[in-house]
């Protein structure tokens, strides 16, 4: 029964025409970046590790961004199309419905991550970076991705319109991404410093550096990832909380 829901989510969000367009746009972006590594002089002088690290940052940022946009539409969209009531009336529990949607959402992210692999393969030639990219993408980053997916889905259940839930997810993503726009000096004090130390996104980038460049061990990576794990727990807690709050308001 839950398989039917997952199947529907996949058809609607992973293999629909809309998502194919998204994939197309994402590959265009990846291509632009990859080509710039081999053509723009400044970038072509980068060490290969740096090239792959920069590419990884973009892959992670873009894939999470589109994932949360899809995620914020999942419940709110059902609400707006007035299909939620029939879904809630099915023998599936709310938790099962949410789980099915989360699986669909993660699959969407997975497809985007798959799209990045040929690029990594080309950019990491002659080094061991490709394996590292796989480990980073599918093991180290998984808590981060699940966290953001759960968060957007949570917003989508609480807020009744797709617009507001997309906006909220988007803003939260930007807040966690603030440190990337700031100079090192700014990151060393005040608000930016706090964001930099707790932001799951910054921490993932730090982990990326420690793993790719500094070649640090598992223990250090775990410490780097601690805020990400906390973020994951909080996101899932929010999703569970939101899940219990799913009700139909009058007139819906």
């Amino acid at each position: 029964m839950i398989a039917a829901l997952i199947g529907k989510e996949i058809k609607e969000n992973v293999f629909s025409k809309k998502s194919l367009w998204i994939y197309f746009a994402v590959t265009l972006l990846f291509s632009g970046l990859a080509l710039s590594f081999v053509s723009v002089k400044e970038l072509s002088l980068l060490a290969q590790v740096e090239v792959n690290m920069t590419f990884m940052k973009v892959v992670l940022g873009i894939s999470i961004l589109v994932t949360i946009i899809i995620g914020s539409n999942m419940y709110a969209g059902e609400r707006e199309r007035e299909t939620l009531e029939s879904l809630l009336l099915s023998p599936l529990s709310k938790a099962q419905i949410t789980f099915g949607k989360l699986v669909g959402l993660l699959l969407f992210w997975f497809i985007i991550s798959l799209l990045s692999l040929p690029y990594f393969f080309a950019l990491s030639m002659g080094t061991d970076i490709f394996v590292k990219a796989l480990v980073f993408l599918y093991l180290i980053c998984f808590p981060l991705v699940i966290g953001f997916a759960a968060l957007s889905l949570g917003f989508s259940t609480i807020l009744s319109s797709t617009k507001s839930s997309t906006l909220l997810s988007f803003i939260l993503f930007l807040v966690t991404a603030i440190p990337m726009f700031l100079s090192t000096a700014m990151k060393k004090s005040g608000f930016a410093h706090i964001v930099d130390t707790v932001s799951p996104l910054s921490r993932s980038m730090l982990t990326l550096k420690d793993y790719f460049v500094n070649r640090l061990g598992f223990a250090v990576l775990m410490v780097d990832l601690l805020p990400v794990i906390i973020f994951l727990i909080l996101s899932i807690a929010l999703l569970l909380f939101a899940n219990n709050k799913i009700t139909l308001k009058g007139g819906e």
């Binding site: 529907k8 629909s16 007035e82 299909t83 029939s86 009336l89």
Partner: peptide, 11 residues
């Protein structure tokens, strides 16, 4: 149940 305002997956 056929709810009052009931939407469909148009696709």
């Amino acid at each position: 149940v056929l709810p009052e305002s009931h939407g469909y997956y148009n696709w």
